[in-house]
Design a protein around this nucleic acid. Structure first.
Lengths: 337, 337
DNA sequence: ATGAAAGCGCTAACAT
DNA sequence: ATGTTAGCGCTTTCAT
């Protein structure tokens, strides 16, 4: 069953295949009646264009890449979900959305202008710097989301993680806490550093002591939040509040607290980062920082589409506001307000 | 900057472009030395094949579709995540993985053998029956995951939801519960029905009364679990245990319970379905049913790849076991063991 | 072991 | 308003 082509239609319509091509592409050159006739024949034959052929001659692939640093550890399901949703909402039917982890590539060879009309990189880690440089070098239209990029100039949309972390840490201080720990994100992720920096900045600005034993590693997943909190609870001198670098870890951390018969926030306050879908439904509802990933994804997709259309890319960095979301996981203690 | 083609390589190598094509495709016909020479020239020119051209002549697109019923409500982030991960792990570099919601298509026109070498449908709802029939009719290699399909014969890999729901409901009964409510899944989703059926079957088999007011609607999201539980708590005669049709709703339901100053499982037992990543980290850890989505996705991808390779599809239904996961959200009450 | 030629399905420049 | 022709980059007969 070989499929129907414009030549088949041409034969039936008694015109040249060029005319069919033009008619199907709504060229103004074609007589309206001819056009209708051709279209109806195409419809009745159930014609569908061969995109490979069209791509070959037009030099467009109709593929858009949505690339994550990794699809394995460090990428939370909520993050993936929001990113895909945001992008997908914008591109609809016009493009194929190809989802992939950059670390799944053995070689970037197959990433090129012929195969991708544009690229959206959800960058989490500096490890994909080489990929971004590669793509920029190949002059593939590209937007990089989530992580601030240096060295190479691209359109770069990022949430203001440091400011958000600063705000949530300051919130703890305002509530009277002076013994504030942090469970950090995945090593090597830029967001890990930004959140740590915001935390430190707040503590320093308010003269709150920074103790090394209250800085524990994590990797953004539930288990690491659980383990990190256990380390903190084993300490002689416990903190009164813990800033978890994302909500997943906060959930794990709270688990560790309740397992010991302690309660959040009565015995220990916990805050997170991201404002995951589930955060409002945790018990207690989690105080956290909203990071507008879906919004950024949507904006990124819109930018990319306009670059492709205008055949012209802009290069700049746009920050998106993160926002403190106050819920019920922080207790006001002596001296707080 | 027009890119380098096999003709450019041919010129430099002093051979015909045919020879280049053969060399690059490792044809045994080509003299090993010529082959090496051509390959090294290709490498130094940074040649990448034009996939549109290759697709056109080979009649393969190198695209695989991973289609969900919807990318909007009803598809939880964990579900999306596991599906993508499972499929991606299998297909690696050989194909482009195109992710899309079926309800985003205005017309299926662009879904055809030329554009997709194969399709993986993560079917949640009967609403995508027409899509599946369309694809099967077009003879696109296809596997349908998650939802049992009737009428059209395809390779169909599904978790045994009903059996899982039966087991978890039975577990509640074994623990002494006889007042067991259900918060249902999204209307129209096959899984909703299967879980409801399993629940009913268990209650009937054990002579436990089925009360209409203990059957409340939901739609698989957190909010609906919260709302559903509130309805149950407002009842004159409350249940002692609630089966939430997925873990997301269980989280929302538990929120409703704790907000009223009640505790799980002391005052009310709650179980879920899916065994989300976060379920083990909830407080209390959630008793639920593991649904092996990642495993099914992987198996589906492998099947599909073999169909494409052998140019021959099998058609059958394979059930994957769901599994009761007992944690801490169920209390043993009088008469239980 | 290599080359010449044809053709995949489409669009577009150049007639008319 | 429509047709003729060429060509996108590749693979594949069919020669040699």
């Amino acid at each position: 069953m070989s499929s129907v082509t414009i030549k088949d239609i041409a034969k039936l319509a008694g015109v040249s295949h060029t005319t069919v091509s033009r008619a199907l592409n709504d060229s103004p050159l074609i007589n309206p009646e001819t056009k209708d006739r051709i279209k109806s024949i195409a419809g009745s034959l159930n014609y569908t264009p061969n995109y490979s052929a069209r791509s070959l001659v037009l030099d467009r692939s109709y593929n858009l890449g949505l690339f994550f640093s990794t699809l394995h550890t460090g990428t939370s399901s909520g993050f993936l979900y929001e990113a895909i949703k945001g992008v997908n909402d914008v591109i609809k039917d016009q493009f194929n959305l190809i989802v992939r982890g950059i670390d799944d590539y053995k070689s970037y060879h197959n990433v090129n202008r012929k195969s991708f009309d544009g690229l959206i990189v959800m960058s989490q880690s500096a490890s994909d710097q080489s990929f971004i440089e590669y793509a920029a070098d190949k002059e593939i239209p590209i937007v990089v989301l989530n992580r601030p990029i240096d060295k190479v100039k691209v359109m770069n949309l990022v949430p203001d993680d440091q400011r958000g972390a600063y705000r949530v840490a300051e919130h703890l201080i305002e509530k009277g806490h002076r013994r504030i720990a942090i469970i950090e994100g995945k090593q090597g992720f830029k967001s890990t550093q930004a959140r740590r920096d915001g935390y430190r900045e707040a503590l320093e600005k308010h003269g709150v002591p920074l103790r090394n034993e209250w800085i524990v590693p994590g990797n953004y997943d539930l288990e690491s939040g659980y383990a990190g909190m256990n380390r903190l609870l084993d300490l002689k001198e416990r903190p009164t509040a813990v800033f978890c670098s994302n909500d997943d870890m906060a959930l794990g951390a709270i688990k560790a607290v309740t397992e010991r018969g302690l309660r959040v926030p009565d015995d220990l306050s916990v805050v997170g980062f991201d404002d995951h879908l589930f955060s409002a439904f945790m018990s207690p509802a989690l105080t956290t920082v909203r990071r507008p990933i879906e919004e950024i994804s949507r904006a990124g997709a819109e930018k990319l589409l306009s670059f492709i259309e205008k055949k012209q890319v802009e290069k700049s960095t746009v920050y998106f506001h993160t926002e403190l979301v106050i819920r019920d996981s922080v207790k006001t203690i002596a001296g707080g307000n």
